[in-house]
Design a protein around this nucleic acid. Structure first.
Lengths: 330, 330
DNA sequence: CTCCGACCAGTAATCGTTTACCGAGCGGCG
DNA sequence: CGCCGCTCGGTAAACGATTACTGGTCGGAG
């Protein structure tokens, strides 16, 4: 029996007699035969995997994006490669190169990025290099790139979310809102800052630079910045944390200082991570549809593969979830 | 210039004149050339990827295992495929088949499993099939298989961890400890139950079946089971939750019933997820080295690849983290 | 009885690399 | 001056599948 016969039998789209079909399946059983993807990919084409590139898998929001993306990829018969960069730019460069070699269908860069000098040129380079290799670059949770690049962008409304959060605080009567921002130049952080300032302006409150404190989106940074603000005697009655994780740190610092939340200080977060509702007090925060974000990113990239049509820019909305960490100032 | 020259130049392990090297690199630049992994894999060998198979990426403990595994894999130059099964056995079967085709170096099954009738036969089948395809099956967070199978097992001390937790409660004077177990036949759950019972015996306390309540490791189940126990008027002064997430649900139910933790009821969890310390009260729980678990799983599997030697069974220890959710009964 | 078409199976080219083997050019040494 | 060996580049086989093309067998129709 020739290899051609076996191949056709397994493919199933060619007339094969029942006798040979039986012989083939029997041999497959006996020899534990499995096709070799590499060989298969070389001739008839195999659908490429989806690559998920993120800073850290354990971050609650990033994990949800990854979960959504994996789910969508699996539903479309793709495997998902997930890679952590730990904010290492060289690693990201390597990964893009690797994914070209792997013939990934899509390379999804997840999460905000620091918008430094080389950023846009680097992304443009990624987009072109991946496009030339037949892969699609997807930016997920970061803003679009200028120019006409082969890239798909799926973002969410950071500015609007922040606006809602701060509007809620100001609507309750607060005027001095400490903003625990993100890192300087971080795209998400900047957009949230814009929302913060717009809400301030909408309520006729002057922006006070000393209340806008940058720092990483981590628990300990939230704790330290809040603690420092308290030690400096900064005047504020509410805190808008750039992230729920930061809010948790802030909560710890406030409590440690003998301040009650929301009795003395109100607190709003961002992300609506699963445990936000389980804090004491339950955290009022901005819900971001993270799983949707991941699903949409993969869906758009994979839809592009076939027909040329299709969106290549989507903005998902956010939603303020009111719980129990906000109260009018005393 | 022949392809052979190009290949050798790029490989770099063959004498090539500077002139040709320059020509090659120039052409690579100009044509945006990248090697094709599939072709490469067909001839000279390419190191296979690591496959991480877990129920759900967003579970805090599973995410940490995945992060550790990905990190170790990346450090060894491997890509990581991550796949969610959502507890679907057929999907798991498909995945094992897929990974054979992919020539994965290791297939890591992460998290406890339900030990039903077919379980061991199925795992044995996986182990043999993967072994025949040159892959290594790794069981991560579940017990070893009987018999002499080509499988690597990396587990942690569920029984010992549960013992420590319950011992701590009993040592504080509690005698009626509600156990919010896992699902019936789930390996982790059964081991934790064993630890619970052993601790009881060690303190001369009789095991009371009505205090041992099975259910899924979810927040809502923790809430519902605690609520039901309260409604039934069950007598208990402490709760040992099979998981921190379950503990969170229990905490909500207790609080809703007007009971203070740890004033009226003490509470211990399991896992030490990141937010455990941020609950009110900070949760006393059992720390499991999840990242280590993932790293070790990948390390052992990959070490096997070369030399035949190496461990194929490791048990990692757990550690009781005492915080503020336990107090002697009134 | 012959011829044609349907049905089935084999031959060989192809995908993109790697690498064993071969051979050409050339410099040094006897 | 001739031979040897080193340097460097080409030829071709192999990896494992898919598939166009070819060809053989058999049944039915003319």
């Amino acid at each position: 029996m020739s290899v051609a016969t076996v191949s056709r039998t397994l493919a199933g789209n060619y007339p094969v007699s029942d006798a040979t079909r039986a012989r083939v399946t029997a041999a497959v059983e006996a020899l534990h035969y499995v096709v070799n993807v590499h060989a298969k990919a070389l001739s008839g084409r195999v659908a490429g995997p989806v690559a998920l590139v993120l800073q850290d898998i354990t971050g609650p929001s990033l994990a949800h994006v990854a979960a959504g993306a994996e789910q969508e990829a699996a539903a479309r018969g793709r495997l998902s490669l997930v890679c952590a960069t730990h904010s290492d730019q060289d690693r990201e460069d390597d990964l893009v190169q690797l994914m070209r070699e792997q013939h990934a269908a899509a390379v999804v860069l997840v999460g905000g990025a620091v918008l430094d000098d080389g950023y846009q040129a680097r992304m443009a380079e990624y987009a072109r290099a991946l496009d030339a290799a037949g892969s699609r670059l997807v930016l997920c949770g970061r803003p679009p790139l200028p120019g006409d690049l082969p890239v798909t962008v799926v973002e969410y409304d950071n500015r609007g979310g922040a606006f809602q959060a701060v509007d809620h605080l100001l609507g309750a009567g607060h005027r001095r809102v400490l903003f625990l921002a993100g890192e300087p130049l971080n795209t998400s952080a900047e957009e949230r800052r814009t929302g913060y300032r717009q809400a301030l302006r909408a309520h006729g409150v002057d922006y006070a630079g000393e209340l806008d404190i940058p720092g990483p989106y981590t628990r300990v940074s939230g704790y330290q910045r809040t603690r420092a603000a308290l030690d400096e005697g900064l005047d504020f009655t509410a805190v808008f944390a750039g992230t729920d994780v930061v809010a948790v740190g802030a909560l710890a610092a406030l409590r440690e200082a003998g301040l009650s939340v929301p009795g003395d200080v109100s607190l709003v977060g961002f992300d609506d991570v699963p445990f936000a509702a389980d804090l004491t007090p339950a955290l009022t925060t901005v819900r971001v549809p993270y799983e949707d974000l991941g699903r949409t990113a993969v869906r758009l990239a994979l839809e592009r593969e076939n027909r040329l049509a299709g969106d290549d820019h989507v903005v998902l909305g956010t939603q303020l979830v009111i719980r129990q960490s906000v109260r009018p100032p005393k």
